[in-house]
Nucleic acid binder design. Sequence first.
DNA 1: AAGTGAGCCAACCGCTATTTC
DNA 2: TGAAATAGCGGTTGGCTCACT
Length: 236
Amino acid sequence: MKMVQDEVRKGPWTEQEDVLLVNFVHLFGDRRWDFIAKVSGLNRTGKSCRLRWVNYLHPGLKRGKMTLHEERLVLELHAKWGNRWSRIARKLPGRTDNEVKNYWRTHMRKKAQEKKQAVSPSSSSSNCHSSSSTVTAVESSPFSDTGKASFYDTGGPNMAGLEDEHGYSMDDIWKDIDMSEENTIIKPLSPSMASPSWEYCWDSLWKMDDEEESKMFFNTNQLVSRYEYGKASVTG
DNA sequence: AAGTGAGCCAACCGCTATTTC
DNA sequence: TGAAATAGCGGTTGGCTCACT
């Protein structure tokens, strides 16, 4: 038997692909991406799978607009670390490096435009956020690490830089964020992940024995079918 | 109502770092 | 210890959405 999988798929992910990927990540963990890419039957690269998981499918992700405090954090940490997006993202629970990066790009584009209009060129400084309304918060550099990490915080090698001289702790920041996030939508990444069908899907998976599991590699369509069925029953 | 441009986000690419054998 | 494989990171781009004209 030979599976004909010629072209590697690129471009936007479909819901079915998402479901498959999430299933296989739960089965095999979120490290063996090449393996997952192969056994899942997705014609994607491991790299692509990882990216999809990290940036979109991971259950710990938070969607919606950046809160004021998150904005401040981004500004502060970028001032400190530069374009170390993943590092910055680790300090923003539920945010990805991609998200932070995208935010920064648009944010800074805006700021640059504002700056052009509002500030004379000679007054610019090394701080790239000089015309921002959040400048005061940023300039005070008030953050320290309390160990509250984002979902993929690996406890990175060097957080000592943040554990320093300032009185306003990360705890305070997080408390503020918690309060402000009453208005922030935190939802599962895919509609599917909160649905009964999703739970059913997991339930079935976890009950599988090894043999079943190996069979599943060749029956991934069933997963999608289950999912679709469940989804239909939810949505009406 | 249609056209246009800007903003935003998801995904890819290339390079580097880390892990495994 | 070195090579190969894999994972991770940062930069870039393409396409979709929405506001404005």
